[in-house]
Amino acid sequence: MGEKQNEEPLQADWVEELTRRKALLGAFVGSLVAAYAVITSFALRFIFPTREPTPPRRIFIGFTREIGAGESKSMPLPSGDQLIVSNTGRINPDTGSPYIGFSNQCPHLGCKVHWQGKEQQFLCPCHQGVFNPEGTATEGPPAAANQKLRSYPIALDGQSMYVLIEEDV
């Protein structure tokens, strides 16, 4: 290589030389691209924050005997939100339990909702917002805005009730 003098453009010469051996060129380009692509993928994985599903954390609420049918119990969560656990008295076919858990914060303007056992609903006293046992607003300003109460899954283990919360990584 380099027999020709440097005054003439060598471009055609070596380009032709390279492209003649297509297999080598392919290997050359391919291996370089592959290696750098892999390390770039590592870098991308690096900067995208981990969103692996960590197992939800269980927080003990109490024993099932503490919340009779129609009753509810309130407790603060580590995140600062307030949980309201209610016993609807009817087994929900999806969860297999009569217990439902929601944040008691009304999505309209943040007032605290109450569980009404007889009417089987959550009532927000500020502007008479009403939510059904699925947490969906059915009356009042939150209903007009298609809002829902934030729900928390309730798990039973024997007689113990736990709320499952997502851990912040």
Binding site: L18, L24, S31
Partner: peptide, 10 residues
């Protein structure tokens, strides 16, 4: 040579 370099690079 260029050739050798290519192979080394691979």
């Amino acid at each position: 040579s260029l050739d050798q370099k290519q192979r080394v690079i691979v």
